[in-house]
Amino acid sequence: MKKLAYYFSICFIAVQISSCKTEAKKEVTKDTEAPKTEVKTAPYSLNNADNSINWTAYKTTDKAPVKGQFKKVNITSGGEGNSVKEAVNNAEFSVPVSSIFTKDTSRDFKIKKFFFGVMDKTQLLSGKLVLENDSIGYADLTMNGVTKKLPFNYTITGKIFNMTGVMKISDWNAEKALSSLNEACKDLHKGADGVSKTWDEVAINITSTFK
């Protein structure tokens, strides 16, 4: 009987020691957990802004405007800061050609197929915005496998950034694409003089409204 009591005493002590070790391990694990860090967003972010990319192309010898926009823009680098200017300066972006919108599905199709579709590697337009001073800047714009500077003027009013510029299509070696589009829209681009013309320039207007 004494032996049995001794045996149970040993077992009880062993269980208690094991339990203490387990608790100690749990406490060590808890103490060594890495503290969680909060991800902070800058006061001004292009990703959170309402970005509107509008353009105006021209047809006929009378230079009749054709307006459109890109419905989507992706900020690929930068785009954040403590001010509007800081957020825009050095921001890198890409614009899917598939997001083009002119309120005319037939025209959208032709621009995608006969203009951008003729170019080299132009599923996306991409670039970087550089603000040189308080009113002018440029975009290092890549299109048709060519990167060129697109100068622009800009204003900042409160939380609204607006830029305007004129893009010369031939600067991106895209004459072939322009001719292709003009041929596809030959009759639609004829004016009163009967001449079909698609102009080599496109006016760009971009507005970012920060929240």
Score class of each variant (00 low, 15 high):
N144D: 09
H189G: 06
L124C: 04
L125A: 06
G191V: 02
H189C: 06
F152V: 14
G117L: 02
Y7A: 15
S179T: 03
F210M: 02
L131G: 05
D140M: 14
K59H: 03
I136R: 08
K30H: 10
N205P: 05
K67Y: 07
D134S: 12
V88M: 04
F152Y: 13
D187S: 10
G137N: 03
T61Y: 09
V97G: 07
A177M: 02
A174C: 06
S99N: 06
Y138H: 13
N205A: 08
T142N: 13
S52T: 13
I17M: 08
G78F: 07
T209N: 13
M119C: 03
I75D: 04
N205G: 05
L124M: 09
E33F: 06
T29A: 14
D193P: 00
D193A: 04
Y58P: 09
D134T: 12
A42K: 07
E23A: 10
M163R: 11
V88E: 00
P151I: 15
E175V: 08
K36L: 11
L181N: 04
A192I: 06
V28F: 09
A34V: 12
K3W: 00
T105P: 12
L129N: 05
N48I: 02
K2G: 12
P35G: 08
V118Q: 12
T37F: 14
V95F: 03
W55N: 09
K25L: 05
G117W: 00
S99K: 06
T142Q: 11
K26E: 02
I53N: 10
A184L: 00
T22F: 10
S99P: 01
G158P: 13
N144A: 14
L150W: 07
I17Q: 05
G191D: 02
E132F: 08
F8P: 11
P35R: 07
V166R: 14
Q123D: 09
K63A: 15
L181S: 02
T76D: 00
Q16W: 09
V130Y: 01
V15A: 09
A177L: 01
A203T: 15
W199Y: 03
S77M: 09
S179N: 07
A57R: 07
D200V: 01
N153C: 09
N133S: 13
N51C: 11
N182C: 09
Y44A: 05
F8I: 05
E86F: 06
Y7M: 14
S180M: 10
G194K: 11
F116N: 05
T209K: 10
L4Y: 12
D193T: 02
D193M: 01
D187I: 03
C185Y: 00
Q16I: 13
E92T: 13
V84Y: 01
T102H: 02
T122L: 08
M167A: 05
T209G: 12
K72G: 06
I13Y: 10
T37H: 15
I206S: 03
P96Y: 00
T157C: 15
C185F: 00
N47M: 14
N51L: 08
G158L: 12
Y7T: 11
I160Q: 12
E201R: 11
L141R: 05
N89D: 08
